[in-house]
């Protein structure tokens, strides 16, 4: 099956005060299309750093990162923005919704910068995404009028509205209670099956780990085991 993500011998270090932290030390990893993969590891093992590099939110020091066979190191900032918009969806731990926009508008945001998508098409995509996450009744609600689980559903809808090749999630259930976390996991699995979307997320959540098809364990900046 085709690789959505292909990471080859990637290094990344950063300064933490006067100390140089080697977050990734020659890490290699492939994520195949349609996979539902979890990245686990202790705190400081390099999970978030890896996710940030895959999401083109940060740059690697060395090594190759390919998203659908595109070398992200070769891209300009604007090209990376386009890549994020078209190929990658993000689900953040603290949802990162825009408080002044309602549910519909929050989900619509990534599509508003796509000139090739007409208004009608945009509306259809937003409503479809909201239907997939079960929030079609809440289109006019603001984030502060929603529960934590509903907010994360909005974030998921925002991630999938552009129909990306890859959805990256950083601890998507960390801020949710157990019952809501299960619902979110169900939803992500359902979308993975229904839309054949590739999910790659880091988590500490045992509930989530027990339900994924692939677990990637990272330790000291390298893949320890799968």
């Amino acid at each position: 099956m085709q690789n959505v993500v292909d990471i080859k011998n990637v290094f990344k270090s950063y300064q933490l005060g006067s100390t140089e932290v080697h977050a990734l030390r020659g890490l290699s990893l492939q994520i195949k299309k349609g996979e539902f993969a979890a990245l686990i590891g202790a705190s400081g093992s390099g999970k978030t750093t890896l996710l940030n590099l895959v999401g083109c939110l940060d740059n690697a020091d060395r090594g190759d990162i390919l998203i659908e066979n595109v070398h992200v190191q070769d891209l300009s900032e604007d090209e990376k923005s386009d890549l994020r918009n078209q190929k990658i969806g993000f689900i953040f731990q603290s949802f990162n919704l825009i408080p002044v926009l309602n549910v519909y508008e929050n989900v619509e945001i990534p599509l508003t910068i796509r000139t090739e998508v007409s208004a009608e098409e945009r509306k259809a995509k937003v409503l479809s995404a909201l239907k997939d996450v079960g929030l079609e009744e809440f289109v006019h609600h603001r984030p502060d009028q929603l529960s934590g689980g509903q907010r994360q559903r909005v974030a998921i809808a925002r991630a999938l509205v552009t129909e990306p090749s890859l959805i990256l999630a950083d601890e998507p259930t960390a801020n949710l209670d157990s019952k809501t976390a299960h619902h979110i996991i169900d939803l992500m699995l359902e979308l993975n099956k229904k839309r054949h979307m590739t999910f790659f997320f880091c988590t500490h959540d045992e509930k989530l780990m027990s339900r994924v098809e692939r677990i990637v364990k990272i330790k000291d900046g390298v893949i320890e085991q799968e």
Partner: peptide, 16 residues
């Protein structure tokens, strides 16, 4: 700040 980061993450360019 984080909201600006989110806009960049979903594909907004600096000029936008």
């Amino acid at each position: 700040t984080r909201e600006i980061g989110t806009l960049y993450a979903v594909g907004f360019k600096k000029r936008e």
